Amino acid sequence: MANHKSALKRIRRNEAVRLRNKYQHKTVRNLIKKLRGTEDKKAAEELLPGVISKIDKLAKKNIIHKNKAGNLKSSLTKRVESLA
């Protein structure tokens, strides 16, 4: 167990940050799932900018890797464009 006051604070802070990152990541995963499940092109086109914005925010905060963010945005855009 940690002996220093700063180490104890860091443990508490790390847990809070971990939970916040987990929440944000799960929220984006749910949005992606919702977008992929959408069959209506108009609805998907309305959802896409918001989802891309959230993915960019995750990448900016290093919650997900920037290349993964790019791959997700690319695949989602292709999916929306392929809808009839």
Rank of each mutant, 00 (worst) to 15 (best):
Y23W: 11
I63Q: 13
N21R: 08
V51E: 03
D40Q: 14
V17K: 14
K73L: 03
K33Q: 11
R29N: 06
E15Q: 10
S53H: 03
Y23V: 10
L83S: 09
N14C: 03
E15H: 06
N67I: 15
S53E: 03
I63P: 13
G50P: 01
I63T: 13
A69F: 07
S75A: 02
R12I: 04
E39P: 11
V80S: 08
V17T: 14
I32C: 05
E39R: 12
S82A: 15
H25D: 04
A84G: 06
G50K: 04
K54Q: 06
A2L: 00
K54G: 01
I11D: 08
V17A: 14
K42M: 05
A84E: 03
D56G: 09
R18P: 01
G37K: 09
S6R: 03
L8I: 07
L8D: 00
R36G: 04
T27L: 08
R79I: 09
G37M: 10
I52Y: 03
S74W: 02
L35I: 13
L58W: 00
K33D: 05
L35W: 15
R13N: 09
L35S: 05
G70S: 11
S53W: 02
A84L: 02
K9A: 11
L83F: 12
E39W: 04
N71A: 12
G70C: 13
K26Q: 11
G50T: 13
I64K: 07
N67D: 14
I64F: 12
R10K: 04
E15P: 01
I55A: 01
K22N: 07
K26V: 12
I63H: 14
L76P: 00
Y23H: 11
K66R: 12
N62R: 09
H25S: 05
K34A: 10
N3Y: 01
P49I: 11
L48S: 04
L8P: 00
I11M: 12
K22H: 07
R29Y: 08
I52N: 12
L48V: 07
R12K: 08
A7K: 13
N30D: 13
L47G: 07
L76E: 00
A44N: 10
T38Y: 04
G50V: 08
Q24G: 03
V51S: 04
K34I: 10
K9E: 11
A43V: 15
N67L: 15
K33T: 08
L72I: 06
N3A: 02
V80R: 06
L31R: 08
V17Y: 06
H65E: 15
G37Q: 08
R13P: 04
I55G: 03
L35V: 13
R79C: 04
A84F: 01
G37I: 14
R20A: 15
N71S: 10
N67A: 14
V17D: 13
A44E: 08
K33R: 12
N14K: 12
K66V: 14
L48W: 02
T38L: 10
Q24I: 02
S74D: 02
R10E: 01
R10P: 00
